[in-house]
Design a protein around this nucleic acid. Structure first.
Lengths: 223, 223
DNA sequence: CGCCGGCTTAATCAAATGATTAAACTGTTC
DNA sequence: GAACAGTTTAATCATTTGATTAAGCCGGCG
């Protein structure tokens, strides 16, 4: 069903598959892997979710491990490069804080299960850490981590010297900012249980958080 | 081996097992479940880790699900009640911040993989949320969440009225504090990859964090 | 001793699961 | 429209895995 009437001729390319089907499989794999984790996901469930036969998963991706890696790298590429780019940009520190908070809460509110999935994968499979950096190599996030932190440190030093900020290392600066943005999503089931929130209640709480988090963080940096 | 020479007679108790063996199994189960996650853990690996036969796992615990739940509830009981008790105590807000940070970083430094494991479980199995509150019922954490947050809110309102603190809801106060303490551990593989740290480097970074986190957090609350 | 009951093990089972195979289908080309 | 190449499917395989079974072990007690 949903067959493409216009099919590109692939004269000499290696086995070139139906890109729409491949995307449908990836979409289903995202859903199932994010819901169950890689170890808990079943190829049959992914096939059913995609509305195709199980053998097709192996036709497009060779193995479960390949499919899982594709999903993970895609998730990692969505989560990390934008933040690193923001932190490494030329904006002022205040602007960076504001933009990172705004960007993170907006993106994570639209994908509330991404952080839990990515963190679980990173914790359960030692190889995921390597795949993480590998996923970011392809994104040409100019400079990558070291330069970003060097730049952050320089900005901080400048403002500390000017007396408009209390000293903090770039590492701790970034870690605090990311923690405050991401952890509520990673620990979403915990907070929902403790504060007795449903999905809407959680979203509302994050909305209120948007208002307060920037001033909280900037307030902590005052001298 | 390591047979108990003194064995208690268990006249009318339900099948009472060798408590030392049971503890060895639980210890092994902790290790494997925390390392691989429940879905990724194998009963055979747990048995080998404990140095016993696989059938013994089923003799002491009926099923993998039972064993996994025992490990999870134990981990949850170690992580949550102390923090809730600290937050609900009679100490001042400043003292609470200081004590929570000190307690969390110390406990998590000794068990760096607990947060990742617990969060992964909560995200991958919807039933874990119920088991979480169930685990905390048994600990008689006087008052439980609602009272704790009510008390926090009262303390905050008092200091806000006195002009010594900027307003913040008790929810956000607690969420910020927990996020800053726990997230670096939950995202440990991520930070280790991004900052190129090994286990020692990570521990050192947390040590430095101990010095700065309290003043960072209290600084954010200044009016 | 001899047997009794709880503990432990080796061996095995049945179901689940990732992967493969061979056949059927579909649109394209000549 | 017949042959062809890429795509999709139903059926099946081999392995893994949680769970069970039946027999062995070991100390205590009569």
């Amino acid at each position: 069903m949903t067959k493409k009437s216009t099919r590109k001729p692939h004269p000499a390319s290696s086995p070139s598959r139906d890109v729409a089907t491949e995307e449908r499989i990836l979409e289903a794999a995202r859903t199932v892997f994010i819901r169950r984790g890689t170890a808990g996901a079943r190829m049959r469930e992914i096939a059913q979710e995609a509305g195709v036969n199980q053998a097709l998963l192996h036709y497009y991706f060779r193995s479960k491990a390949n499919l899982a890696e594709a999903v993970f790298q895609q998730a990692a590429r969505r989560l990390f490069p934008p933040v690193i780019a923001l932190l490494g940009s030329d904006a002022s520190l205040d602007e960076k804080v504001e933009r990172v908070v705004e960007h993170e809460l907006r993106v994570l509110l639209a994908n509330p299960f991404l952080p839990g999935y990515v963190l679980a994968e990173l914790n359960q499979d030692p190889d995921r850490a390597r795949q993480l950096v590998e996923a970011m190599m392809g994104t040409r996030v100019e400079g990558f981590a070291p330069q970003v932190f060097a730049k952050l440190a320089a900005q901080i030093a400048e403002r500390v010297a000017a007396g408009t900020m209390r000293p903090i290392t770039a590492d701790q600066f970034a870690m605090n900012l990311i923690s405050l943005c991401v952890f509520p999503f990673a620990a979403r089931p915990m907070f929902c249980a403790l504060l007795q929130l449903d999905a809407d209640g959680f979203a509302g709480m994050i909305q209120r958080r948007k208002e307060t988090l920037v001033s909280f963080f900037l307030g902590a940096l005052r001298p």
